[in-house]
Design a protein around this nucleic acid. Structure first.
Lengths: 304, 304
DNA sequence: AACTAGGTTCCGGAATATGGAACTATCTCC
DNA sequence: GGAGATAGTTCCATATTCCGGAACCTAGTT
């Protein structure tokens, strides 16, 4: 009835799995039965099967975490490539809409920089919690002294690109890292928690570059309000760009999507509509990645 | 018969999923039916169910990749914490065996450093391949110019710890980053591809610190041969440590586990046996994460 | 146009998953 | 310390759900 596909068991198991992987908190057996509306016995059987296959893991409190298969995948080093693969159709779509250069960027660098830094930060922040899972010995000191690491600023690296259809447009920027304070991608990551504030002084790439922390903070507030960032000849003379954040189920942006064009084409009147398209596409990607769509970040738990 | 648990469908689906996530290459439908020994119709039904739930993804060639749920998880930022959680029981075990300070370390930092750097590197290296998945527009330039990013050396950051049982032992090093060339964790990461070679000159932390690239290269060769690294008062006078690599299904170490002690306790005669324990535990963790156990890295595909 | 490869849909049959109830283990409160 | 509540697993008869062979479809090849 509910599954006209002949895959009821798998649909249910996948539902459980999604619940476990989705939430940042570990989930209890009872919460899962309730959330998925399954009988206790069924839930138990399914979860034990998932655990057997390392798709979920149980801590000593009996709560469920994403299993070893997920951890392995995350550390395998292919997640970056897969983000590009997942994002590509979205970037293509934006490219078709705008005809301009589209980029996907992530934070990198810093002494404890980029994704590594955020992983580590999250790891350390949660370590007090997660250590409990160990069950046994001395894990209690874990979690102290996390904040002291920092030197060298983060940058934003462009990891995928769709080329402009015009003859004048962005060259190939894939692999290129640029400062956060003067790029649209960077401003978005800063505004939405995807990167740490760089240290002063800010390099003045052009006469329009924002060079003070106060001015940048104000700008980031505006970015949060609008939901997108703009750089108007702040990185390179004649280059205008807009960017919007990509989320993956968390509160912080994991990446950003930008549209870049010569100032002569991306004029002031065109910026809002272009930015809106950029935001829409970034939101769609976020939704695909399980994040809250756009700026509508409010829900707590999933209902039945 | 095969599944005495009443979860045949899920066992089979999990088997398919493991095949897809395990391999670094995308897997074709036919390969999956063969590898799992299932009927075409069954495989088709199961895979469609998995795809519906974003557990696998199909590219334009019809081959299967890990799904959005995995990508989302990997970028959610909790993978670091979960590595700690998964590793903790192993670290505890090693702590009980040795009574000394145990650490789990990962590479961080560098201008394109740590995990971020490796993700990016992998992403860029594979982008030519994965971009095809996009189906549509201009992805062909993607993949060029990857190698040019580097400035500032990587370090190794300790992300979990088990304390020594002795009164004299390691203080809390969680969150602390140390140079690669003079730490056992760092040497292991360097030897097994988990970190990039630092630039000269190497800081001489003690009179025993290795300070030349040639000497370090030779040492790393020895580390690869032995399967573990030793630092004998090279980081701090009186501090001796051994470390072994952790793999997660790839060729490069994702982390390392170390045993640290005062030189007076971890004497030359004790080093081999302690190192052997460290290697055994690191291999066990690698196995849990799906990596080849220890140094025995040879198999290609999984058999039936 | 016929053939092959790769994959999906259909359908009857029966193996398999289901869920209520019984059971065990752990807390909590009196 | 015993009764009761809470959390989760095992059991078992039932029929629902999944299985797999065969037909079918779509592209690419000769």
């Amino acid at each position: 009835m509910s599954s006209p596909n002949g895959t009821q068991a798998i649909d249910r198991a996948a539902m459980l799995l999604a619940q476990v992987v989705h939430g940042s908190e570990p989930v209890s057996f009872t919460e899962l039965t309730a959330a998925c509306g399954l009988a206790k016995s069924t839930t138990s059987r399914l979860l034990m099967a998932l655990e057997r296959h390392q798709l979920v893991r149980r801590d000593s409190d009996g709560r469920f975490w994403p299993g070893e298969l997920f951890v392995r995948y995350a550390w395998r080093g292919t997640a970056g490539a897969h983000l590009v693969a997942v994002a590509q159709p979205f970037l293509d779509q934006l490219g078709e809409q705008t005809s301009e250069t589209i980029n996907l960027g992530v934070a990198t660098g810093g002494a404890d920089g980029g994704r590594a830094g955020r992983d580590r930060a999250a790891g350390l922040a949660n370590a007090g919690v997660t250590a409990r899972a160990g069950g046994g010995g001395a894990g209690s000191d874990v979690g102290a002294s996390a904040a002291s690491i920092s030197a060298g600023d983060m940058m934003v690296t462009q990891i995928a690109q769709v080329n402009s259809r015009y003859m004048i447009g962005g060259t190939n920027w894939v692999g290129l890292a640029v400062p956060l304070h003067c790029s649209a991608l960077g401003k978005v990551l800063l505004a939405f928690g995807g990167a740490a504030m760089p240290s002063e002084p800010f390099e003045a790439r052009t006469p329009h570059t924002i060079t003070t922390r106060a001015a940048l903070s104000a700008e980031l507030g505006a970015v949060r309000d609008r939901g997108y960032a703009v750089t108007d000849e702040e990185l390179e003379p004649g280059l205008v760009a807009v960017a919007a954040p990509v989320f993956a189920g968390g509160l912080t942006a994991i990446a950003a999507i930008s549209v870049s064009a010569p100032a002569s084409r991306l004029t002031a009147d065109l910026i809002p509509v272009t930015a809106a398209r950029c935001v829409a596409v970034a939101s769609a990607l976020s939704a695909t990645l399980g994040g809250p769509s756009g700026l509508d970040r409010s829900r707590g738990t999933t209902a039945a």
